[in-house]
Simulated assay, not measured.
Amino acid sequence: MHALILAGTTEARALATALTATGMRVTTSLAGRVREPKPLPGDLRTGGFGGPDGLARWMREHHVTALLDATHPFATRISENAAEAARRTGIQLIALRRPGWTPIPGDRWHSVRTLDEAAALLPTLGRRVFLTTGRLGLHAFVPQGEAHDLWFLIRSVEEPDPPTPHACQVLLDRGPFTIDGERALLREHRIDVLVTKDSGGPATAAKLTAARELGLPVVVVRRPDPPAGVRTAPDVDTVLALLSPAAADTYP
């Protein structure tokens, strides 16, 4: 069997480790947005495939028998391309999606569908914003027309793509983060509202606890649904259980 992992999450690394330990051939694909990725077990490729056509062609040429989508829950384009490529080739596809976050008593969450909705809501909630939605899509927070007086602390792993809000400070950092560290960060920058995507997982969940303890509102961008008909798994063990031996016979 040859598994192609579409990576971008910590679960992708754990999945590659688990599969190579079984003796399976594993290729992990990274989009190439992180300049210095950590070493991964098995083979590694970087860069795009050229849409569903290119992905299907690559899988046929390299005799892939299982396609595992372990990308970020908000990486909708590659997930849609994976679903279409799997449909065209008949190759087994499993999407690894860690469970999303759920509010608990004391949380002051405001659920929105998009970054644009989050940006529109902010002036009603606070003026100093901790923005943790990643380095893409920050143009949604650049004022259009009538200017606002918001200030942003933007945290991302890599330097954000322009345009970014005019009044901002960029903090380059990578999780996991601690509750003590997040609490201190919120206090140091006098943050009064947090914006995040519902990426799930423990690595960046400490900010939610710190915001709850400090009584801060949190704007949560809901994750999109996976493509229709795609089988999903919440963790690595479930993916391993779902990988059918019959997948070895999928390639014609």
Rank of each mutant, 00 (worst) to 15 (best):
P37A: 03
I5E: 06
L115F: 12
P99W: 15
A3F: 01
R87N: 08
P163D: 09
L216S: 07
L243C: 03
A21I: 01
V218K: 12
E182I: 04
I78V: 13
T204S: 12
H62A: 02
S156H: 08
A248M: 09
I94A: 05
G175E: 06
A82W: 04
R127K: 15
V129H: 05
A66F: 02
G201R: 05
G145T: 06
R77E: 06
D161N: 09
A56M: 10
H2M: 05
R183P: 00
I191C: 09
A14H: 14
G181D: 10
A18G: 06
R87G: 13
R33P: 00
L30E: 06
F74L: 06
D43W: 02
T76Q: 10
P105Q: 13
R223V: 04
G200E: 06
M24T: 06
R135D: 02
D69C: 07
V230C: 08
D149E: 15
T114H: 10
G50Y: 14
I91H: 01
A66E: 03
M24Q: 09
I191N: 05
L194P: 09
A247H: 10
I191D: 01
A205E: 12
V221G: 07
G126Y: 13
P224G: 11
R190G: 10
A118P: 12
P162I: 03
E182M: 11
D198N: 15
D53T: 11
P227R: 14
C168L: 03
E61K: 15
I78N: 04
